[in-house]
Design a protein around this nucleic acid. Sequence first.
DNA 1: TTTCAAATGTAACAAATGTGACAAGTTTTT
DNA 2: AAAAACTTGTCACATTTGTTACATTTGAAA
Lengths: 221, 221
Amino acid sequence: MEIKLTSTSLFKGLNEDEIDILLSKITFQRKQFLKNTLIVSQGENCDRLMLLIEGSVKGEMMNQAGKSLKIEDMDAPRVLASAFIFGKRTVFPVNITALTDVKFLIIPKPELLRLLRLNDVLLQNFLGMVSSRAQFLSEKLRFHSFKVLRAKVANYLIDESQQQSSFKLKHSQNELAELFGVARPSIGRAFLQLQDDKIIDIRYKQVTIIDKQRLLEACNE
Amino acid sequence: MEIKLTSTSLFKGLNEDEIDILLSKITFQRKQFLKNTLIVSQGENCDRLMLLIEGSVKGEMMNQAGKSLKIEDMDAPRVLASAFIFGKRTVFPVNITALTDVKFLIIPKPELLRLLRLNDVLLQNFLGMVSSRAQFLSEKLRFHSFKVLRAKVANYLIDESQQQSSFKLKHSQNELAELFGVARPSIGRAFLQLQDDKIIDIRYKQVTIIDKQRLLEACNE
DNA sequence: TTTCAAATGTAACAAATGTGACAAGTTTTT
DNA sequence: AAAAACTTGTCACATTTGTTACATTTGAAA
């Protein structure tokens, strides 16, 4: 179902009438893609803002052999590549593929600049989006800085637990393996090791943190 | 020596008179810190723009054990934490310490917003800064995506060669080891392996690319 | 030039992770 | 409820990387 623009990070805080008036002042496109379509290629020029208003997509980084390191799934409502429009090298850093049928609202860069000048709320929203994107990447990078897999997994569990001692994993081991850039059995081994050490109890997706202190320590190994 | 604001990424494209006029319209602080002073603590609220106009600082992230993972040194002119003023988590992610006596120009967030609205060049500069930060992080992430060390090293050599077949390395193996997050002898082994395969010739810092085609292929392993 | 600290080459062994495979469990679909 | 598809547990073995150590070479300082 198509998302109302009022619920997007770019337009939040504005009502539908205000948005309509603003959009009537610029030139933009609505565009649809079928499931599994390649929407944007890594390296393609990033000269427009892409607002995902229906469906979900995945962004993945490919090496020259076509092997992919999955970065993230994205659901509507969501703005793609907001951080790459104004940089020096204005190219998309990832391939973007449709996971479902999707609809986009596409605003060319010059029109986006005009739009940001038209309205203060929009400007603050956009600054917030770009900043949050940089923060997200920074966090990903921090994750890669953990040397051993056990520390990555421990950190992941801390994040996912949300202060609860018992919870269900959102991702399969396959997804985690792709996320961490390791082989799937390695994920299983890391879980098993934390269990053998009596730090967590894990049975399929159900996790219980037994010793949070030592789980925190495991992040620093 | 104090840096002219015209040479900062925020004010570039404006002349001194224009900058003076703009700054006269907002409230801001000039602030100095002595060498080795802790300027900002990790977790502190990031509610102002900090423009380093003289000296150099280091940013370091601490883990829960208080062990520091060095992130980067920063020299004037430089804007600190531009991505954290408008993001969701508005706290500094690192400790910032003065490496020399330093001078800052500090602009509170509301004043920064007013400033960005006052001038289109400033707005584009600021958007460019945050975007470039995201690109930098994205590039770092791409580097981590290479699975085997040989591929990282091959990629590094391609980057460093700048299309020359013979060149000198800018970094020591120790630095490369830190950059790639591996042990130092592993770097040596990767170089040696590329040499054994007659893809490069390397003798200390002097590198000659023998077979560029296969070096490119080595990026995909 | 001589001296010395740092960088590099290299080796042996330990540890972590990858690969491929298959059985067993779980969830979704029919 | 039964079947199919997916997920997880687990194994043996290959490969990569880490660790430690020491000799050699280089480049900078005295």
